[in-house]
Design a protein around this nucleic acid. Sequence first.
DNA 1: CAGGTCTCCTGCTAGC
DNA 2: TGCTAGCAGGAGACCT
Length: 273
Amino acid sequence: MPELPEVETVRITLLPLLMNKKIVSVQLLYDKMIVNNTPESFTSRLVGQTFRGIERRGKYLIFILSNLKMISHLRMEGKYYLKDESIPIEKHEHVIFTLDTGESLRYHDTRKFGTMELLEFNQISQTGFSSLGFEPFDDEFSWIYLKEKLAHSNRPIKGGLLDQSVISGLGNIYVDEVLYSSKIHPARLCSSIRDDEFKKIAENSKVILEKAINLGGASVHSFSYGDGITGRFQNELNVHTHADEPCNECGYVIEKMKVAGRTTYYCPNCQRM
DNA sequence: CAGGTCTCCTGCTAGC
DNA sequence: TGCTAGCAGGAGACCT
C-alpha cells in the first residue's frame, strides 16, 4: 500500500518521463474511479493538456497540466506505467493517456480503489485532499501541532496517526514503525500520550519517512512499482509484517492485533500499555 | 462533533 | 484437485 515515501518515489520517477508531453487521447475503462466529474467530461477536458509538473501532498499525486490539475490517489495498488501505445492494454489498466510521443501513460489498479479528480487551478477538491493535515516535513509541523490535534481524542493513537486530516502521509506500515520507534503501544488512547511521547512521534515520523524516501520506499505485500523500480525500505521494517519474529531491541516475540480496524504489529515488551 | 462500522474490489490463502 | 469462505486495506458513506 503506497504511503508518502512510495508516492514520492512514483512522483520522482514519473516526472522526467512525462514533462512537456501532451495528451492526445484518453481511454477510461473504469468509470467509478473518477471523482466529481462525468467520465465524458473527464476524458474530453484532458485532451490537449500538456504535463507541466507533478507535485505530491500526503499520499496524493498532483499532475500539473496546462490549465488543469489532476489529483490521483493510488490507494492500495495503483501504479503508473509508461508504455509504447502499440502495446496491448492489460487486464487491470483502467485509464490510458495516449501522448504525442507515441507513448501512453497507463494507470493500473488491481483492486480498483484508486481515484482521480480533475480540477481547475483554483478549484477546491471534493475529497479528503482538501482537509489534509500537515506532513512531517512541513515547517508548521511540530509535536505541539500533533498534541493540539490529538490530546483531546479518545481514539487509539494508531487511529489518530492514520487520520490524514491530523497528519498526512502515514499509512498502516509507517504508523506501526513510528510507534515502535517511539516505544508506544498502538492501542494507547491519544488522550494518554505525554508531551515527551508526542515529541518522539513527531521526530520519528520525520526520520522514518526521510529514510524510506532515500531508500525508494517499501515494496510490501501487494504493492510494488512499475518499470523495474523496487523500494528497499521493507528491509528496514522493525515490526510491520514481522509477527512471531523476535524484536530487534529486546528479543520478545512481535505480536499482531487489530487496532482501529487495522492489522497492527508491535512489540509487547518495548511498547507497553 | 466524535467515533465506530460497513463498503468498495480482487487476489490470495486456508480449509475441506 | 477444485471449490469456497474469509481476509486485507484508505478513505468515504453512513450510523449512533
